[in-house]
Amino acid sequence: MVKIEIGPSDNGGLRASVVGKIDENFEGQEVLKQARPGQRVTLRLDGVRSISSLGVRALEHFMQQLGDREVVLEDISAAVANQVTMIPNLLGRATVTSAKLPFVCPSCGVEEARSIPYVRDAATTHAPACSGCGAKMDFDGFSEEYLPHA
């Protein structure tokens, strides 16, 4: 079950934040009803904790229904990022700008999900500083499992 919060974005577009698990019941009707033809849609997906196999189909269908609108995905969660490496067509023509992925501080051990650009090797080239001690954090995963690598 997901919760969707919708509001305007700075550039006259529509902005929606999706939180929860995407499963067979996900339709995204709230977004589809409010998005005007041609309007830019920005989806924030860092709250998506999991996607089931039926959710994969529901999400793909939702992305298709957004049609030819410009769709920008911000801070896709590790769950979404990992699915996209296995199912590259999942997000259709949407542009992913950033991913919120797991990092761990080698100095103080803090674990945090942090936002980095959605580009190859960003987990290394844009490794964040620990919010606790300021040390450069290590990616708690492999880029190949969460970021574009082709």
Partner: peptide, 22 residues
């Protein structure tokens, strides 16, 4: 991965075992 597409319709998406293995 280009073949990893959910089956259309409302029954199984055909991805469950693959996702479990992953």
């Amino acid at each position: 991965p280009q073949r990893a597409r959910p089956a259309p319709g409302t029954s199984g998406a055909g991805l469950g075992l693959m996702l479990t293995y992953g």
